[in-house]
């Protein structure tokens, strides 16, 4: 079994909860090296995502990804809206007709998301951006698939790698985004985009409660 449409919807509800719970942390991270709006923007965006997910029935995981993408593009603003939006649109394109996302699908969706973010943001690994969380996440997901891991194992591997990748942005000097204007002074802080990416993947991997809807739904092996 993999991730069906209900599981993907439930996962995005969890993402919204996690982002909202970490709102202040993201605000502080972004205030240190950016314009301080990342926590607020993402919280607003994922709150809107919950509302649009509740509005109707969804045919497939790809449809859910597209709906979340367009909602984020319209509500997040800043660089994060277009970047998350592009990532999710590309992920949707990578798994067009799947009823359920298996391990390979999750890895393919992550790889497509990374490509989208790189194309849109023109950032490379080491620039102190979301890419620094996504690159190790994609590599870890592909490794987990190679090792015969199930969907949950692939998500767990991606999440753990993103977490490490985000942490390792701290010493980097930003070369993209608002933080790049700070030059050397951007070192010593986590990149807020890499941190939020790790939080999103963490919520996807976690079986945590989602009280508002479809409680306990998670991507099973």
């Amino acid at each position: 079994m993999g991730c069906g449409v209900d599981e993907v919807v439930a996962a995005f509800h969890r993402v919204a909860e996690v982002i909202t719970a970490h709102r202040d942390e993201l605000v502080d991270l972004d205030r240190a090296i950016g314009d301080g709006d990342h926590g607020e923007n993402l919280t607003r965006g994922f709150t809107a995502v919950r509302a649009s997910l509740d509005e109707g029935e969804h045919g497939s995981p790809a449809e859910v990804l597209k709906l979340v993408a367009s909602t984020l593009i319209s509500t997040v603003g800043g660089a994060a809206g277009p970047l998350y939006g592009t990532a999710l649109l590309r992920a949707a394109k990578a798994v067009p007709d799947r009823v359920e996302l298996g391990p390979e699908d999750v890895a393919a969706a992550l790889a497509a998301a990374l490509e989208g973010v790189v194309a849109r943001g023109r950032a490379e690994a080491g620039d102190k951006t979301m890419v620094d969380a996504l690159v190790p996440a994609v590599a870890a997901a592909e490794r987990a698939v190679g090792d015969g891991g199930d969907t949950r194992a692939v998500l767990a591997a991606a999440s753990a790698a993103a977490e490490t990748g985000a942490r390792e942005t701290a010493p980097l000097v930003a070369r993209k985004g608002r933080a790049s204007y700070l030059g050397e002074r951007s070192a010593g802080h986590l990149d807020p985009g890499a941190r939020s990416t790790a939080l999103v993947l963490g919520a996807f991997a976690s079986p945590g409660p989602s009280p508002s809807r479809t409680p306990g739904k998670e991507c099973e092996g």
């Binding site: 800043g78 660089a79 809206g81 277009p82 849109r120 608002r178």
Partner: peptide, 11 residues
Amino acid sequence: DLGSARMTAEL
């Protein structure tokens, strides 16, 4: 003007 304006414009 700045980076995210480009991304929004592209989208």
